[in-house]
């Protein structure tokens, strides 16, 4: 249990203080929000920081709000808060759906959405929902703020575009202007808590546009322009969903690891894609607005 490494701890009261700390310590500092990934990493001694910067004093980051036609999810928003947010249910149902499948309630009460995309482990649950929603990652440093489309955010397994002296303040999800419905599917070894061996997110718009993202079947989660284009050209119906499913083999390249073989991952991604598409179609029909 004991962590045999020593490091410092600061809990800044303002974002400016936090950014000054990051500026000073750079890559030797680690940001601590929910800490559910970080504590495990430190126990294993992967990356040993010199300083933990606990951002839980920055109340402004603990908000889910709609601002400038976008849903803002602050860096301290936990998956539990997402599960209890009517705003998320209304505007990004698929994120709400995915959040319910993250670990267990005891972890969801602590783990954050932003932490999830900062740890950027390939099997993360929030990536697919954010990708299909064209979400934007907002970072801050003493040098200013940046906006990075989530599509560009992931660089490799556990690697993102965040700068050494930067922190993520929030992610924003542009509010779709028309009726839409999404669905998230996660490949798990059983119904209980599990990391995704693969996941699929789809978002269907009233005008026929469809966005599709695949996770855990490559080093980074990704959208599928191939399938999106196919639906754009042909429209979404049961036959086209089946045809699009057959394209998946040429789009993703899953690997075999301790959780599943590449064959099963491939098969399941196709099954989940079809199920997600049908769920989204059904949900769209029921949408009122």
């Amino acid at each position: 249990m004991a962590i045999p490494f020593e490091f410092g701890y600061e809990k800044p009261a303002t974002i400016a203080d936090a950014l000054h700390l990051l500026d000073k310590w750079g890559r030797n500092a680690r940001i601590l929000a929910g800490g559910t990934d970080l504590a495990n990493e430190l126990k294993q001694g992967f990356r040993v920081p010199e300083l933990l910067v606990d951002i839980k004093g920055l109340d402004a980051l603990e908000k889910i709000k709609v601002l400038d036609d976008a849903l803002h999810i602050g860096a301290l928003v936990t998956f539990d808060m997402v599960r209890n947010s009517q705003l998320v249910r209304d505007h990004a149902y698929i994120l709400y759906e995915a959040a319910g499948l993250v670990a267990s309630s005891g972890v969801r009460n602590r783990a954050t959405v932003v932490g999830n995309i900062c740890s950027a482990v390939a099997c993360m649950d929030s990536a697919a929902p954010l990708l299909v929603h064209d979400a934007v990652v907002h970072t801050a440093s003493l040098e200013g703020e940046r906006e990075v489309p989530v599509q560009d955010w992931f660089v490799d397994n556990r690697k993102t575009l965040v700068g050494e002296k930067e922190m993520v303040s929030h992610v924003s999800i542009p509010l779709p202007k028309i009726k839409h419905a999404g669905a998230y599917q996660k490949m798990m070894r059983y119904t209980g808590e599990d990391l995704a061996a693969a996941n699929v997110g789809v978002l269907l718009m009233e005008d026929g546009a469809c966005r599709v993202a695949f996770g855990s079947v490559g080093p980074i989660p990704r959208r599928s322009p191939e399938i999106e284009l196919f639906f754009e050209k042909n429209g979404v119906n049961a036959r086209h969903i089946d045809q699009a499913k057959d394209m998946i083999g040429g789009i993703i390249s899953p690997i075999t690891d301790v959780r599943a073989t590449k064959e099963y991952r491939m098969h399941m991604t196709k099954v989940m894609f079809v199920r997600a598409m049908h769920a989204a179609v059904e949900r769209l029909k029921k949408q009122k607005i």
Partner: peptide, 16 residues
């Protein structure tokens, strides 16, 4: 052993 942990050696939960 590659999975000496409950993350990847799955014993049932109340949902299973």
């Amino acid at each position: 052993m590659l999975n000496p942990n409950f993350t990847d050696y799955k014993i049932p939960t109340a949902l299973d």
